[in-house]
Amino acid sequence: MIEAKSLTRSFGLIKAADSVSFKVEKGDILGFLGPNGAGKSTTMRMLTGYITPSSGDTFIDGDSVSRNPLKTKTKTGYLSETSPLYSDMTVTEFLDFCAETRGFKGRQKKLKRDEAIEKCFIKDVASQQIHTLSKGYRQRVSFAQSILHDPQYLILDEPTDGLDPNQKNEVREMIKSMSHEKGIILSTHILEEAIAVCSRAVIISNGRLIEDSTPEELMKKDPDYGCINLKIDYSRCEKNISELIKATEGVKDFKLETAEKQSRYSPVKIYPDIKSPTSVSQLMGRLEKNLSSSGCEINSIAVDQGDLTKVFQLLTSN
């Protein structure tokens, strides 16, 4: 388990991280969410022992990172935000170097290196010098370096930053496949990534940890969670749409929104009286009946699952 206890770090007068505490067990994928400058990278650098906290400490399987740097660093793999690499080396030379510093020699070193190259799909560029690689490949080499020694914990700072959609997907699948035996912390400001990959999420804002939950629970904080989103063409409706909706039983309030360009369907948000799944589903049925029987064309009707972006904005903008 990685346990961060009240990690605080100031740079002069600025408090980059303020008493950040959380735990990560093996099998967790913890998402670090937060706006730029919130303190995510600073916190990760404290976890890996790159910078020392002004106060507080991190414990990895009970060992303190500040007092046992060598022992704790062997258990972690770190992908930095800037994915720093030695540009004058080839990919193979670089990974050999990383393997050697981690104590691998001879045949075992080659094995580990080749395994990491395979897993990260960098075999094609293995003999190329790093300064010739594109951003995507550099990121993958950095990733390879972090998993080479099969660490129990991975700390990944924006691992899909700058990658194209295919590469983003590959990296996410890789992370998910590794999560079973590892504890993984990854920071991102792509919220769909948090939903797709993470089993837990924390939100950091202005150096403070303001939420520690799961992506699903966070989405429930959206005030529109549990609402019904309609996409409807009411141009040929016999009656007034507002009256139709008001007349439907179980509707607390509703909002008519303007249609997107080129679309004849206008979005309508309906806030139900009771947000329980059964009553919402019954309300949906009644709405469908009322609206279509009056000539309205329903394009889609669905229950709002919560927008993490909105929750994020609500929690972090002040």
Partner: peptide, 13 residues
């Protein structure tokens, strides 16, 4: 270049 961050997070003193 930032490689000091890589070096200092490896298990080296």
């Amino acid at each position: 270049t930032g490689t000091i961050e890589l070096l200092m997070t490896l298990p080296v003193t």
